[in-house]
């Protein structure tokens, strides 16, 4: 089976597993992204057909939400909070440092595929700001030392 048809088969399974749910598209898209790392173009017709939607509707939803990726992310995803409480604790300076060290701007992935840098608007860690997320892990009270350790981790 080609990669593409394997992906399509996986998407079909996910759609089947969500039958009977009211308004299933978001849970389905989350599941697709969890399984495949992104929502590939090839998934769109499968989703549309399986859920009784038009391809344009599916595409419209995928593009509306910041969470859904149409291309794969790097092996690690660093998300830095850009919102106000983190700004008040020097978040913007830290963001500059991260961008400079990784050589990336927001939403970019390093050429070696190691890391994607993303902004996030509040992680609910506003009383221990600045805050970040490395893959599944939340980090509060971010400072230069913690940041250096995080960036070492993603380069490995």
């Amino acid at each position: 089976m080609s990669d593409e048809s394997a992906a399509s088969a996986r998407v079909s399974e996910i759609v089947a597993a969500h039958q009977g749910m009211e308004g299933p598209l978001l849970p389905v898209l989350h599941a697709v992204q969890a399984a495949l790392g992104h929502v590939p173009q090839a998934a769109v017709p499968v989703l549309a057909e399986g859920l009784g939607l038009t391809r344009a509707e599916v595409r419209g939803v995928v593009s509306f939400y910041h969470d859904f990726r149409e291309v794969p992310a790097g092996r690690h995803v660093v998300r830095l909070c850009r919102a106000e409480a983190c700004q008040a604790m020097g978040g913007a300076d830290l963001a500059q440092q991260v961008k400079a060290r990784l050589g990336l701007d927001w939403h970019q992935t390093s050429a070696d595929g190691a890391v994607t840098l993303e902004p996030v608007f509040c992680l609910g860690l506003c009383a221990c700001a600045p805050a970040a997320q490395l893959d599944g892990r939340l980090v509060g009270r971010l400072d230069e030392a913690k940041l250096a350790a995080l960036l070492d981790e993603v380069r490995r």
């Binding site: 849970p27 939803v61 939400y65 910041h66 969470d67 608007f121």
Partner: peptide, 23 residues
């Protein structure tokens, strides 16, 4: 149900659309 990173989906009618699987 898990949101998908859109601030405006906190607005109640936007939230309902999102819950229904729409933009």
């Amino acid at each position: 149900r898990v949101g998908a990173g859109a601030y405006v989906c906190g607005e109640e009618t936007s939230l309902l659309n999102s819950l229904e699987g729409k933009r």
